[in-house]
Simulated assay, not measured.
Amino acid sequence: MDMNDLHQVLLLRQGPIHELTLVMDDYWQGYNCFEFQQIILHLSRNHTVKKLTLFGPYESKNIWNKLPKSVFALHHLTDLSLSTFHIDLPSIFNGFGCLGSLCLMYVKISTQTLLHLLSNCPSLKTLNLKIDESGDKCTINELFKCLPLIERLTMSGVVSKWLVLDSVAQELPTSLIHLKSLCLNQSCLSGAYGSALLLALIKCSPNLEHAYLEMKCDLDFSAIKDEYSDVWLEHLNKLRICFFRNSLETEFVKFMFARSPKLKNVSIFVAVDRTQDQSKMLETLFRTPRASSAVKITIWTV
């Protein structure tokens, strides 16, 4: 069904539309972009949509279609997922008072627009971010202040392109006290920036229950024992880590073992160069003191 046919079906529909997914492939983008905008406008005027998923066409790198601003008139949304769009807010935006879940993947959005959007989603509990282009930057504290109720946070891609760590990252004034699930993947954790970002998040998330972390090379956890000795992850019960063979990354795992008294399941995916290195690393991890006596460790090596 093309966009024109779908538009006609929606015009004839008299019943409610609570959930809708639209995918604009290259064909639709070329011939039916106007119809796509009309569909969103029709929904904003005639239906109380609760869940909306929109996939824009991916033409080439650094090219995004603009998201119809009528999306921001869908005030009853509880779940919103947007992919491959250039996002800009309308001049008058009253917020999404009911929005509990927001997913922005492969989008172009300025950090000021992002902060304005997030600060007007007072019920937001789940956030998934992968920003391809922003044009400006915000600090980690500015971001956290917009997420007072966040429970599930996922960040992907090169976060350092748009998110700046504050001068003293380990002393964050904003605590993510409701955060239960943290996922950092696809180059989030790389180099000194990545280790500082991870430790800042760990320190200000005392009620974290689940963590999934993809670690790249050159992370630095050499000062973790001294500077983060007061961290105590009392509720963490599931930890999943992917990393390359690195003694400092192993230090982070040992730190998490020692600071998580309720830890039950640990999955570690690690790439090692030699069998000797693999055996040494495994021996180190299995002998590491643990705050939890019930922890089960599973390790995969490649």
Rank of each mutant, 00 (worst) to 15 (best):
L176I: 10
R152L: 07
Q8D: 12
I87E: 05
H178I: 03
N246C: 15
C121D: 05
C188A: 03
K108M: 04
G30W: 07
D230Q: 10
L189I: 15
L179H: 10
I297Y: 00
K225Q: 15
L129V: 05
M3V: 10
R245N: 15
E283V: 08
L147E: 05
A73K: 13
M256E: 03
I92C: 07
N120A: 08
N62Q: 08
Q170S: 13
A211R: 02
A211L: 12
D230C: 07
H76W: 04
A294L: 13
V231I: 15
E151Q: 15
L285W: 03
F243G: 00
L236T: 06
S156C: 08
E133C: 13
L179K: 11
A271M: 06
Q38A: 01
E209T: 07
L117W: 10
G135S: 04
Q14P: 02
E59C: 04
V272Q: 00
L172N: 15
L10H: 02
K203E: 06
S83Q: 13
A258M: 15
A223W: 09
V9M: 07
F255W: 06
R240C: 14
D230R: 03
N46F: 12
S267E: 11
S175L: 14
N4L: 14
E251S: 15
F34G: 02
S81R: 14
H235I: 00
L236W: 10
S181N: 13
T288E: 14
D273A: 10
T84G: 00
A169C: 12
T275M: 12
D25L: 04
F36W: 06
L198F: 13
M1I: 13
P16S: 14
S267C: 11
P68G: 05
T298V: 03
P68C: 03
S110H: 07
F72V: 11
I241N: 00
I241W: 00
S247V: 14
F96W: 12
K161V: 07
N120T: 13
F244N: 04
L172A: 12
L22S: 02
N141Y: 01
T288Y: 01
T284N: 07
L80Y: 05
E209P: 01
N207I: 03
G135A: 02
L239V: 09
L6V: 14
H75E: 14
F255A: 00
K125W: 00
C98M: 09
T21C: 06
Y212P: 01
V253L: 07
V231H: 08
N128K: 09
F96Q: 06
H116K: 14
W232T: 06
K254P: 02
L219C: 13
N120P: 09
D230Y: 04
V266L: 01
F286S: 00
R290H: 03
L12M: 11
N185L: 07
F93C: 05
V9L: 15
I17G: 04
C217S: 15
P261Q: 01
G15M: 06
L6W: 13
K264D: 01
L82F: 08
C204N: 04
K262G: 00
I109F: 11
